[in-house]
């Protein structure tokens, strides 16, 4: 067995990273096509607020991060559909509110800056067994909902008005997507960190969109590219001793370049 798989923390990193690599682009496909790519960054900052609360209370921070991000995603959805703010203004408003509150809470708590850093920059090699269970269970829920509500999600993404006139419950579907995104972001933060979480949600989707020929293929390919990015990035990180979050995102970018090249070749053929 290779050295990398003889270490328990690396095995846990591969399992948790595999789940996150699969579900992040799965949701990202719907977000990118709705022009909501930056929602991940906003929710990462909201999740950071949850982490700060968890650390201050000395409780499991991922739990608080999931709750905060899920609530944040619902607030964004509400602001976005109320027509009071444009989509990007709603994202900015929620991001700065969460960040300012998180900074205040962090200043109140002493001595948890090191823990917080693992959420900012990713701490996949510090993922514990309870993280693996949480990521596995919540990741499974995300996959099941996307599969069961596939047609509703696709139709609402294609055109919300057309979907409504077909009988799709667009409001409910969008709320579910928002909550799922709120759940997925804190999980992805454990792998690549809050600063790069948006990259794992968006870049594999952009790569997949270069070559996939159907919506189903886009979902499956983006998910596969997400897993490939995480596995390759972790391996590079282990043997070259570089930060795993950065290595994963740079690998995903490499795959995007390859996919763009493949698209050019397909167009010429």
């Amino acid at each position: 067995m290779p050295e990398i798989f003889q270490l328990d923390f690396m095995v846990r990193a591969f399992i948790a990273g595999g789940f996150v690599g699969a579900i992040s682009p799965l949701l990202g496909t719907f977000l990118v096509l709705r022009r909501l790519s930056l929602i991940a960054d906003t929710l990462a900052h909201v999740a950071l607020l949850g982490v700060a609360i968890g650390l201050l209370l000395d409780r499991y921070p991922v739990f608080f991060a999931v709750i905060a991000a899920a609530i944040g995603s619902l607030i964004i959805e509400r602001l976005r559909t109320s027509n009071r703010f444009s989509g990007d203004a709603a994202l900015a408003l929620v991001l700065y509110t969460a960040l300012a509150t998180a900074v205040v809470i962090i200043s109140l708590g002493d001595g948890f800056n090191v823990d917080l850093f693992s959420f900012l920059f990713g701490g996949i090699v510090t993922v514990g067994q309870e993280d693996v269970w949480a990521i596995g269970a919540l990741g499974g829920v995300v996959v099941l909902v996307v599969v069961f509500l596939y047609r509703e999600l696709v139709q609402s993404t294609f055109d919300p008005d057309l979907a409504r006139t077909s009988g799709v419950r667009v409001g409910l579907t969008n709320t579910l997507l928002a909550v799922l995104t709120g759940i997925a972001i804190p999980l992805a933060m454990r792998v690549v960190g809050a600063l790069l979480v948006g990259a794992l949600i968006v870049i594999p989707v952009l790569a997949s969109l270069q070559i996939a020929r159907s919506f189903r293929a886009t979902l499956l390919l983006s998910s596969s590219l997400g897993v490939a990015s995480v596995f390759s990035g972790l391996t590079i990180s282990f043997y070259q001793d570089v930060a795993p979050g950065g290595a994963i995102v740079l690998t995903a970018l490499g795959l995007l370049v390859l996919a763009s090249g493949a698209r050019l070749l397909m167009a010429r053929a």
Binding site: L33, R35, T157, F158, D159, L209, S214, F215, T218
Partner: peptide, 13 residues
């Protein structure tokens, strides 16, 4: 409708 929102992005279908 006059158009669909998906026509303003590269919708993969």
């Amino acid at each position: 409708p006059q158009t669909a929102s998906a026509f303003s992005v590269r919708f993969p279908a």
